[in-house]
Design a binder for these strands. Structure first.
Lengths: 98, 98
DNA sequence: CAGTGTTACGGACGTCGTAAAAATC
DNA sequence: GATTTTTACGACGTCCGTAACACTG
């Protein structure tokens, strides 16, 4: 599983459309389709109910959506945590040149 | 940022060694080195203080480690969430027109 | 000199975008 | 008939492992 998969999944779920999700993600529709397929294949369960003109979350998809958002948020938190040094006192190893 | 980066980062932090982390992750040492480098480059901050024989977390590394673990756990949670349908009541999208 | 991390190189795998096809409304 | 998703294909990029290198203790 990769963050890219989750991004695609959430985008499709929110847009209820592969093409709109692709626009939002700035990639081709086919890329979104393949990425979601890969995630479904990895989970072994379908996440979307596809008809030609409608996309809908399956039961599994609903159950997964919140966790996916949480995981993406957690990844963002990593970025933020790196930017902000420890609030109080953190042992700073003096910059030793290699 | 990718989950692979975080896995490598956490492994090195816990093992305090690139080579041991590589063994745990079942990849070559060079792969771990490059992966951590990529993460540091993306964050724009060093995560480890490297001497030839010792690896130590920088201040930034310390601040980041917990978030990284949390993100990995969140990714695992996605997998679990997919397996378990909604605990109570979940709207089953049999035919919910948009 | 033994052990560790980094860099170079070559190959393999994956992903992308374009384009064509299938199917629904 | 228009729109949307999926699949095929070719090209590009990325990542890996091996191996050589640099350096520390």
């Amino acid at each position: 599983m990769e963050l890219r998969h989750l991004h695609a999944f959430v985008a499709v779920a929110e847009e209820r459309s592969f093409s709109r999700a692709a626009t939002r993600l700035r990639v081709a529709q086919s890329a979104v389709s393949r990425t979601v397929q890969a995630l479904e294949r990895e989970l072994g369960l379908p996440l979307f109910e596809r008809s030609r003109h409608y996309v809908e979350l399956t039961k599994t998809g609903h159950a997964t959506l919140d966790s996916a958002r949480a995981a993406l948020a957690a990844a963002e938190a990593v970025r933020d945590a790196a930017r902000q040094p420890c609030p109080a006192a953190c042992p700073q190893p003096s910059t030793t040149p290699r």
